[in-house]
Simulated assay, not measured.
Amino acid sequence: MSYLGEKVKNTICFGFYPHHLDIENERFSVKTLPDHKYAVEHVLSDSNVINDWIYPGKAFEKNFINGVKKELPYSTRVFGLPKTHVLTLHDGASHEELDFVVWCISFFTGMRLTTTEAGFVDATPIKPGKLVDFVLNRCTLEDAIELVLSYVKNARGQPRALKRVAAIIHSLFLSQYPHSLAFERFQYLYMALDTCYKLLSVKEPIDSSKPNSHAQRIEWMCTKFNIPVPTWAKVDSPKKASQISVVRNDAMHEALFFDEPLGFAVYGGNVRTGTQSSTLLQMQALACRLIIAALGRPEISYVSTPVDTRGIYPLRLI
């Protein structure tokens, strides 16, 4: 099979992406692998696909004495999917930079892609657009990758910048596993937002007014990029905490989620209110806006759109 198994400088295979994607310019190329049709058919027909998500199959244990495989009463957690495309960066790149570009392609397509043999945890979407609240509009994936490559160039000399962006995307995606408990979703999303703060704050001057306390971090980021501050992130006075920071402190320091042990309460508490799921959705939407801003497009209209909606926004990068 072309590309797969070959170690070609500045080139890396990734997947699973169900559509053809072929781009060639002076800076990079993305090519669809020859067996794309077979790989897509194989995945889409898998019995472990439910509602456009694919789950890993049963775990097995092999007896190395008699060679008998025993099916275990639980599923494996980490699994792989076929590679479908190959990325090449023409001007030279480290493996870390190639991997980072694929992380960002994941983000702009709204589905998890990986360069590794087993890069998926618990479940992953098999259709684009599942994990973000935007669609590219009047721009293409080529424009998105150009933006990412400019970020890579500017981030050289900042050892953890690429890792932090990838970590934000990964936490954002992990939070949307369909069977996560509310506290698990919250923890992944808070980690994503706190990593956004770290990514942005390290670039601020030493004497800047950036906050140190968790209570003010999200409001500071929203203000920085003209994003309407969600109610749960507002700080009424310097001595008060935001709603979200109180939830974070209880969960991280006391293993309590709305005054219950982890897993025994939904977000907002067990008395039904309209905020129980909406805050988590707003955290997802905010993470998406902060990623776009951090990658170098803080001025575009999408970044400053409110997060208290379930709508899908057009994302115009140019």
Results as ranks from 00 to 15, higher is better:
3 Y>A: 08
4 L>S: 08
5 G>F: 14
8 V>L: 09
11 T>G: 07
12 I>D: 02
12 I>Q: 02
14 F>T: 04
23 I>S: 13
25 N>L: 04
27 R>F: 09
31 K>Y: 07
34 P>F: 03
36 H>I: 13
40 V>L: 07
40 V>S: 12
42 H>E: 06
47 S>C: 05
47 S>K: 09
53 W>L: 03
65 I>P: 03
65 I>N: 06
73 P>W: 06
80 G>P: 10
80 G>Q: 07
83 K>V: 15
85 H>E: 06
91 D>T: 09
94 S>M: 00
99 D>E: 12
104 C>K: 04
113 L>E: 09
116 T>H: 02
116 T>L: 03
117 E>Y: 04
119 G>Y: 02
125 P>C: 03
133 D>S: 03
138 R>V: 05
141 L>D: 11
141 L>P: 12
145 I>S: 04
146 E>W: 08
150 S>R: 13
152 V>L: 09
155 A>P: 11
164 R>Q: 15
165 V>H: 11
170 H>V: 06
178 P>G: 08
180 S>V: 02
189 L>I: 14
204 E>W: 09
205 P>W: 07
206 I>G: 05
207 D>N: 06
220 W>E: 01
224 K>L: 00
226 N>D: 05
229 V>W: 02
230 P>K: 05
232 W>F: 07
233 A>F: 12
235 V>Q: 02
240 K>C: 00
244 I>R: 09
244 I>E: 07
247 V>T: 11
253 H>L: 15
257 F>L: 07
265 A>W: 02
271 V>T: 04
274 G>D: 11
277 S>E: 01
278 S>Q: 00
279 T>Y: 02
282 Q>F: 03
285 A>L: 06
287 A>F: 14
291 I>V: 13
292 I>D: 15
297 R>G: 12
300 I>L: 07
302 Y>G: 04
304 S>W: 13
312 I>V: 13
315 L>G: 08
316 R>N: 14
317 L>T: 14
